[in-house]
């Protein structure tokens, strides 16, 4: 009997991830591991982790990683990639990290067409720090800093990072995916692979925005969080390839 679906070598064999039940951070980290294993580049990969729940990845993944100051992952990745061009360097950042605190570094790296890959986790909220409003929080969605829900006049509108970066000339590849079904999970896997291949081919900045869930701070059990993701998050953040110059 042949094993046709195996736990990837990109995560540690006997570690249980620190993420909450049903959290798609775990799914994406698993997918990244699968892609690196398939491309046979685990040994030359460096992950640059954002601050927040992203940091829980550190104990779970099986290869080199560094945690950057909050929001600065793209700047740290730039330094690592430029000094070690043979490494595969990717950042792993949440919405608070990539789209708020690190907005300047993120947009600047994309604008330079930096030859790195960004895996951007959009779950519409700050996770680890306690459910604060993120740039990606939906209108009307409650957050610990917006107890009545996000109000446009007070908090502005949800930010669409793929579309914002699509205004720039340099980025090579921008795609928005999700892990809400097995089919979409496989599409996310394919997008991650493409982002990494682009980097190996020297094509410059690639980003995969994965629309995910935060059952804990959404106050929903995992299955209910899937419903919220399908009905609300994916209406605001439609899936698809936003740019492909790869």
């Amino acid at each position: 009997m042949e094993k046709i679906y195996a736990r990837t070598k990109g995560i540690r064999p006997d570690v249980v991830s620190g993420f909450c039940p049903g959290c798609m951070h775990s799914t994406v980290i698993k997918l990244i591991g699968e892609v690196l294993e398939e491309m046979n580049i685990i040994d030359k990969t460096v992950a640059v982790l954002g601050i927040g729940c992203c940091g829980l990845k550190m104990e779970y993944m099986s290869y080199d990683n560094i945690t950057s100051p909050h929001g600065r992952a793209c700047a740290v990745a730039t330094g690592i990639k430029r000094s070690n061009p043979d490494s595969l360097v990717y950042t792993y950042q949440g919405d608070g990290d990539f789209a708020s605190i690190g907005l300047a570094e993120s947009v600047s790296a994309a604008n330079r067409g930096e030859n790195i890959s960004v895996i951007f986790i959009n779950n519409g909220i700050y996770g680890m720090t306690g459910g604060q409003l993120a740039p990606t929080t939906l209108l009307g969605m409650k957050a610990s800093t917006a107890p009545k829900g996000r109000i446009a006049e007070e908090h502005g509108y949800p930010m669409h990072m793929c579309e914002i970066l699509n205004q720039l000339t340099a980025p090579c590849y921008l795609e928005r995916t999700s892990c809400n079904t097995p089919q979409n999970t496989l599409k996310t896997r394919k997008a991650i692979k493409k982002a990494f291949q682009n980097q190996l081919d020297g094509k410059g900045f690639s980003m995969v925005e994965v629309v995910t869930n935060c059952p804990t701070n959404w106050g929903l059990d995992p299955l209910k969080s899937l419903e919220f993701l399908n009905e609300k998050m994916l209406t605001e953040y439609p899936l698809g390839v936003i740019r492909d110059n790869g």
Partner: peptide, 19 residues
């Protein structure tokens, strides 16, 4: 039927499939 869908969707890599 060995379709692997369970393995793919499992966030925590808790499922392995054989055929």
């Amino acid at each position: 039927i060995g379709c692997k869908m369970c393995g793919v969707i499992c966030p925590d890599a808790a499922i392995e499939v054989y055929k």
